[in-house]
Design a protein around this nucleic acid. Structure first.
Length: 486
RNA sequence: GGCCCCAUGGUCAAGCGGCCUAAGACACCGCCCUUUCACGGCGGUAACCCGGGUUCGAAUCCCGGUGGGGUCACCA
């Protein structure tokens, strides 16, 4: 590629960041990095009614959290700004005026009611509504009269008739549209704010975008944009339309499917590298067989020709597996830091942690880390260390406590623990082995009742770790509770 | 409905005319490790949508059908 690659992600700040947007951003970002190009952030906020500054901030925060950085953007500026559409309204207006002068666009005075009526009639006949071009043939005199009366016109693009428009798409190949199905579409609203299809072309041209990589839902807009590029005399970028991210029911992933926004995954304790790795593999695949990949490896291997054409279902199970993998790879300190808010929310700990408490918690984390699919699950797995009363979780657990040999195991166990000077996990483990040997009952008959007595569960971390972390005081307390029942 | 895109196991996917009696991963099942549950290791079940072509040869190319998705705004 002779020219420096310049790509962009252009979200509209009208809501939380969607998973699909993240994947599109990621593909753009990886593409830029792979070819040593620039990745640009731009806000498309021409929908003034729905755009909010707080969402703009959220977008910036989420992308940063994911580790995606941009070389130019609304927050850091750049040579081709502004990077926010509402800040360059007059520029769009100038280009629109130029098109009007060249008769490539025209004023439209049709009212919303007229247009709605037309659409209704068309659907009544089972047809698709195409703007009939009512105002296209207005004479200058008629136009001036309406303007003089104070009517605010929108500006429509005069679509050439009977033209084939071909998108040379990098992932899809040539996609052909007939200009006649487009209808003269609005490019500037009566209030002077440009419509997406118009603004996006001017921005991409202004910012020297070389490759437009975006979701497939935009492909039907592309012919309109190509027409505008041509009318304005701009050079066309290369297009690459990536397929969509689907929910389990194979429709576009949305809030209906539960978690469709990155923020939800962040809050539940998904790691950014897991999300990135997972999303990269959804619709793209590397040449080899490795699937766990660092950002650097992804950059190294990413090319557009390995992007799949078919849409992909967002498989939470695979994300869970991958996230679990990254959690296991992470330090106990990191997972503890991420766990703290969840533990506080569960009422297990208070905000300020003493050094001892933190060290203790870190050991708890170390014990349960292997079991986590996301950090919020610490609450479930760590609860055995925080609850006051132990209740058998199910019939199976209850049955273990009722075993004939259980009471003798308990008293022997308690006696052993009581006389242990060294309460380290290793010493406890050693002592448990001695106990098993002495009782001659086999491992299960010894470990299981103790486990259930101490945690109420038939599964969990290694017993000697549980004992160590609970401490002799709470061991006695819990054993006492159980002994009074059995 | 019009237009556009897509079609390999339940899911993500490799495959780009012979190497395919079709990789790998998740999930599922079994075995091993182990006091339990996980982790880890080993193994297993499971797919080329259908019908026509083209070709010596098709999962791979072409056409049709079917199915799924997207899009049809003075939203982006």
């Amino acid at each position: 590629m002779a020219e420096k690659v310049r790509v962009r992600i252009a979200p509209s700040p009208t809501g939380p960041v969607h998973i699909g947007n993240v994947r599109t951003a990621l593909f753009n970002w990886l593409f830029a990095k792979h070819y040593g190009g620039d990745f640009i952030l731009r806000f498309e906020d021409t929908d003034t009614a729905r755009s909010k500054d707080e969402y703009a901030q959220i977008i910036i925060n989420e992308f940063k959290w994911l580790g995606l950085d941009w070389q130019e953007g609304p927050d850091i500026g750049g040579p081709y700004g502004p990077y926010k559409q509402t800040e360059k309204l007059d520029q769009y207006r100038q280009w629109a005026d130029k098109l009007v002068q060249e008769r490539k666009a025209y004023y439209c005075f049709c009212s919303q009611e007229e247009l709605d009526q037309g659409r209704e009639d068309a659907s009544g006949r089972g047809e698709v509504y195409v703007y009939p071009g009512t105002c296209r043939n207005l004479t200058d005199a008629e136009k001036d009269e309406l303007l003089a009366k104070g009517q605010k016109p929108s500006i429509r693009f005069a679509v050439p008739k009977g033209q084939k428009i071909i998108i040379e798409d990098i992932v899809r190949g040539n996609v052909e549209f007939d200009s006649d199905i487009l209808g003269d579409f609005v490019i500037v609203r009566p209030d002077g704010v440009p419509i997406y299809n118009f603004a996006v072309v001017i921005d991409d041209a202004d910012m020297h975008i070389t490759h437009v990589i975006r979701a497939e839902e935009h492909i039907s807009n592309t012919p309109r944009q190509i027409l505008i590029y041509e009318a304005l005399g701009f050079q066309l970028p290369r297009f690459a339309h990536v397929s969509m991210v689907l929910g389990p029911d194979r429709t576009k992933l949305s809030k209906r499917h539960g978690a469709a926004f990155v923020g939800q995954y962040r809050e539940e304790g998904y790691l950014p590298e897991a999300l990135i790795n997972f999303l990269a593999l959804l619709g793209w695949s590397p040449e080899g067989e490795k699937e766990i990949m660092t950002l650097e490896e992804l950059i190294q291997e990413f090319t557009l020709d390995r992007i799949a054409k078919n849409p992909g279902v967002f498989d939470i199970q695979k994300l869970n597996w991958m996230n679990g993998h990254y959690i296991r790879q992470s330090s106990d300190d990191r997972i503890l830091d991420l766990s703290v808010p969840h533990l506080i929310q569960a009422g297990f700990i208070e905000g300020d942690l003493s050094h001892e408490k933190r060290e203790w918690l870190k050991q708890v984390i170390a014990c349960i880390k292997d079991h986590l699919e996301n950090v919020s699950q610490v609450v479930k797995h760590a609860s055995i260390f925080f609850v006051d009363t132990i209740v058998p979780e199910n019939d199976e657990a209850e049955a273990v406590l009722k075993e004939e040999t259980a009471p003798s195991v308990f008293s022997a166990f308690l006696d052993k623990m009581d006389h242990l000077d060294d309460f380290s996990p290793e010493a406890i483990q050693k002592e448990l082995k001695v106990l098993t040997k002495e009782l001659k009952l086999g491992g299960k008959k010894v470990y299981m009742p103790i486990r259930v007595a101490l945690t109420g569960q038939t599964h969990g971390p290694e017993l000697h770790h549980i004992i160590h972390l609970l401490g002799i005081g709470r061991i006695k307390e819990r054993m006492g509770q159980i002994l009074s029942i059995v």
